[in-house]
């Protein structure tokens, strides 16, 4: 009787959340999968089933390939810059935990992660600006010729990577600091007794012990890298001023196909590709973690 009453309460309490969740999350996800197999121009009533035709077309679509390559380069570029920097920074900040500036370090590194994306991107747009920006002036002092940072196809990708890394760093540092705090102090003391120097105990004790955290942060960074959109939208306008066209990214290509070209089914198939990438990354993370647990 009591058990039954509790069950009823539990159901009633979770039902609203569950209903909302099904409505704004489960259904749209299922709909994405369904639409990716259909052809729909947004206006007509019927959505004919086309099987895998959308995916087949994607394979020959140069704009999509462009977007996929750019997005992948950005995601891995951010990863390569962020993880090592964050690990070293977190180690140094953790080492100086008792310093009276520790709070300032943490806050300063973390602020780029929380500020609104667009204003922050604006600051970088000014820094990279070919004519007005301080970066070219700074470089010219070292005798380097000014570059059209935001209009050169290679350099504009670099700019986006710099912006994304600047933002992603704070999150990675924070998670690493939590990781450092969870490591047993006795481990470092033992290393010290054995005569290990600071850098040695960092490399031979901290780095291996923090491997699961590195794995987690890497996957989170990669996934958010694959979802890059606003950064490219603001930084990479093309010569005509069309936002985000200079560096085409997946989300932009998807939204253009859906809302500009009225090819919703096709756009949904791109979303499915994005989902597949994210799932593969997550699976890799889980299988690596499990492997580690077994050994």
């Amino acid at each position: 009787m009591l058990q039954r009453k509790r069950w009823i309460f539990a159901m009633l309490a979770i039902l609203p959340t569950l209903a909302i969740f099904a409505w704004v999350r489960l259904y749209p996800i299922a709909d994405t999968l369904r639409l990716s197999l259909q052809k729909w121009d947004m206006l007509s009533k019927n959505k004919p089933f086309v099987g895998l035709a959308n995916f087949r077309e994607l394979m020959g679509d140069h704009l999509f390939q462009d977007a996929l390559v750019n997005t992948t380069i950005i995601a891995f570029g951010v990863l390569i810059i962020t993880i090592p920097t964050a690990l070293v920074l977190a180690a140094l900040i953790y080492h100086r935990t008792r310093s009276r500036f520790a709070g300032f370090y943490e806050t300063a590194v973390f602020i780029p992660y929380v500020v609104s994306l667009v204003p922050a991107a604006m600051a970088w747009k000014w820094i990279f600006d070919a004519k007005l920006g301080p970066l070219n002036v700074l470089l010219s002092m070292f005798g380097i010729a000014p570059q059209a940072w935001l209009f050169n196809p290679v350099l504009s990708v670099v700019c986006i990577i710099v912006l994304c890394s600047w933002q992603a760093l704070g999150y990675a540092v924070l998670i690493y600091i939590v990781g450092f705090k969870s490591l047993p102090v006795s481990l470092f003391e033992a290393a010290k007794l054995d005569g290990a120097s600071g850098p040695q105990s960092f490399w031979y004790v901290s780095v291996p012990m923090l491997k699961p955290i590195t794995l987690y942060v890497s996957v989170v960074t990669l996934i958010s890298g694959f979802n890059v959109y606003a950064q490219a939208f603001v930084l990479a306008s093309d010569a005509q001023g069309a936002p985000g066209r200079q560096v085409r990214v997946l989300v932009l290509d998807m939204l253009e196909n859906s809302f500009r070209n009225y090819r919703v089914g096709y756009a949904a198939s791109e979303a499915v590709v994005l989902l597949a990438i994210v799932l593969v990354l997550t699976l890799i993370q889980f299988s690596l973690l499990r492997e580690k647990g077994r050994s």
Binding site: I29, S258, V264, A267, A271, V272, L274, L275, V278, T282
Partner: peptide, 15 residues
């Protein structure tokens, strides 16, 4: 939880 918002935002738009 792992499905990014960007994946299902187009159907959500139609809702």
């Amino acid at each position: 939880a792992v499905v990014p918002f960007e994946v299902y935002m187009i159907p959500l738009y139609f809702q």
